[in-house]
Design a protein around this nucleic acid. Structure first.
Lengths: 105, 105
DNA sequence: CACGATCGATTACACGTGTAAACATCAGCG
DNA sequence: CGCTGATGTTTACACGTGTAATCGATCGTG
């Protein structure tokens, strides 16, 4: 199941804070920085739920969300995809690329 | 201008062969491997044209296509994007990730 | 107990993408 | 000179994504 870029911003909050977060928490942590409305975050949460990337457990009136997908798995999948597509799967090719491009930094 | 994954398959042909290629060439080089119809490649070519990622010059009845976007620029943009999003821009973090995951290989 | 605030669920909509068929044009063959 | 085949252009359509408003249920307050 693929996680979109906007969704991954939400995932990041869940990954960083290791305790289950309420929608309110997540909105507070993302919306201002991203220039999102609350509704936007709510949509992302339900899409992530549908994708089973996160789980929600009732906490009284609200839900607390926690990640099901592990960050390291996500990172690996994304990285490997890029590595394969652009560098023929060779890590050193990627490293070489960056060491070239970074010379001027 | 963003290049989609399918589009990048077409770009790859143009990048690999350094001489301008006809649509027929490009179709032959991509369609079978990707399981695409000819129409699909044609669509991708026109989208790439619209995005100005490639240029076409008449060659009698047909067109010959060549890349405008440089592969190294594309690769860099993609890589940097991933690096920033997933590794806080730190190359060594990426390398560390892979050296971990690759241990079993 | 009715009412408003709160929170999640439903609906909305435009745009990019993957995938492809239909259409138009034009050159060469019969 | 009309037809056919090649080639590019237009149109099509479903699905994911970004972005958000509206609806519906429910709880606490007056």
């Amino acid at each position: 199941m693929r996680i979109s870029e906007a969704e991954s911003v939400v995932m990041d909050v869940l990954w960083r804070r290791h305790t289950p977060q309420s929608a309110e928490d997540i909105i507070a942590a993302t919306a201002p920085g991203q220039g999102w409305q609350e509704s936007t975050v709510k949509t992302l949460l339900s899409r992530l739920l549908k994708k089973r990337a996160i789980a929600a457990e009732r906490d009284g009136r609200r839900y607390l969300y926690r990640p099901l997908l592990k960050r390291s798995d996500y990172v690996h999948a994304e990285s490997k995809n890029l590595l394969d597509r652009l560098y023929g799967g060779r890590v050193y090719a990627l490293v070489a690329h960056f060491s070239q491009r970074m010379k001027l930094t």
